[in-house]
Amino acid sequence: MRRTKHIRIGMPALLALAVVSACHRPSPVQTKPEGKPGPAELIELPNGTIAARPGSAVERMAHYLASQEPAPRTFRFEEAEFAPWSAHPNRETLGTLASIGVVLRQYPQTRIRLTGYTDNVGDAGRNLTLSTQRVTTLKALLIAQGVPEDHIETQGMGMADPIADNGTEAGRARNRRVEITITQK
C-alpha cells in the first residue's frame, strides 16, 4: 500500500503556484465567443513571463509598468470582487491579485495605493469600516506574496464614488470594489 504525504500550503502560496504553473503551459488555441474572455497570452516581465487575458487589469498593469508613462495610474478588477458585507475577496479576485503580486515583485520600486469602496446599502459608518477591511485584506495577501508592506498604502472610502447604479444588484456588485493605483514606478 502506497502512502502519500500531505503538505499544507497557505492560500497566497497556492495562488502564486497556480499562476506560475499556468505561465509554463501553452495557451489553448481557441476562438473567442463574443463577450467571453479569450485565452491568456504570455507577457514579458523583467525576469520572466506571466500569463494574462488580453485587456485584463494584470495585462494593462504589466504593460504600464514596462512603459515610460508617468504615475499615477489606477486599475480596476474586471469582476465583482466581494459579496455583500464581506471583506473576503471572491476566487476570481484572489487569482487576479496573485497575478498582480507577481507583476509588482518584478518592479520593486513600484508603490501602490489600494482604495476600497462599497455599495450604498446600510449605514455609512459600517460601509466605511467594511471598505477599510477589504483593502487591509488585499494588502495582507500582497505582503504574503512578497510585496513590501511599506510599498502599499490603503484607504477606505465607503459608499463614495459609485461607478455603477446602486439601484440594481449588478450595479451594487460593481461598486463593491478595490482600485489599485500605481503611485510610483
Rank of each mutant, 00 (worst) to 15 (best):
M1N: 07
R2Q: 11
R3K: 14
K5Y: 13
K5T: 15
R8N: 11
I9H: 02
I9S: 04
G10Y: 03
G10F: 04
M11P: 04
P12D: 04
P12W: 10
A13K: 12
L17R: 15
A18Y: 03
V19F: 10
V20D: 11
A22T: 08
C23V: 03
C23S: 15
V29W: 08
Q30A: 13
Q30L: 12
Q30H: 05
T31K: 08
T31F: 05
K32L: 10
P33S: 09
G35Y: 11
G38D: 08
A40C: 12
L42T: 05
L42C: 06
I43L: 15
E44D: 13
L45E: 07
L45D: 10
G48T: 08
T49Y: 12
T49G: 03
T49K: 15
T49D: 06
I50W: 05
I50Y: 05
A51H: 09
A57K: 04
E59N: 08
M61V: 04
A62Q: 02
L65E: 05
S67M: 07
E69G: 01
P72C: 03
T74F: 02
F75N: 10
F77Y: 13
F82I: 07
A83H: 05
A83Q: 13
A83V: 02
W85H: 13
S86H: 11
A87Y: 10
H88F: 09
P89G: 04
P89E: 07
N90K: 08
R91W: 11
L94Q: 15
L97M: 06
A98N: 07
S99D: 03
G101S: 05
G101A: 13
V102P: 01
L104W: 04
R105P: 03
Q106H: 12
P108N: 08
P108K: 09
Q109A: 15
T110Y: 01
R111Y: 00
R113H: 02
R113S: 09
G116C: 06
Y117L: 10
Y117S: 07
V121Y: 08
D123P: 01
A124M: 08
G125A: 15
L128H: 09
L128I: 05
T129A: 14
T129W: 05
L130V: 07
L130N: 04
T132I: 01
Q133H: 12
R134H: 07
R134A: 06
T137I: 01
K139F: 04
K139D: 05
A140I: 00
L141Y: 11
L141S: 02
I143W: 01
I143P: 02
I143S: 00
I143Y: 00
A144Y: 02
Q145N: 11
Q145Y: 01
P148K: 12
P148W: 09
E153S: 09
Q155M: 07
Q155L: 13
G156T: 10
G156L: 11
D161E: 15
P162A: 07
I163F: 04
I163R: 12
I163A: 11
I163W: 02
A164R: 09
N166G: 14
G167R: 15
T168N: 06
T168C: 07
E169P: 08
A170H: 04
G171Q: 06
R172C: 09
R172W: 03
R172E: 10
A173G: 13
R174D: 07
N175D: 12
N175R: 06
E179S: 14
I180F: 02
I180V: 15
I182V: 15
T183F: 01
T183M: 12
Q184I: 00
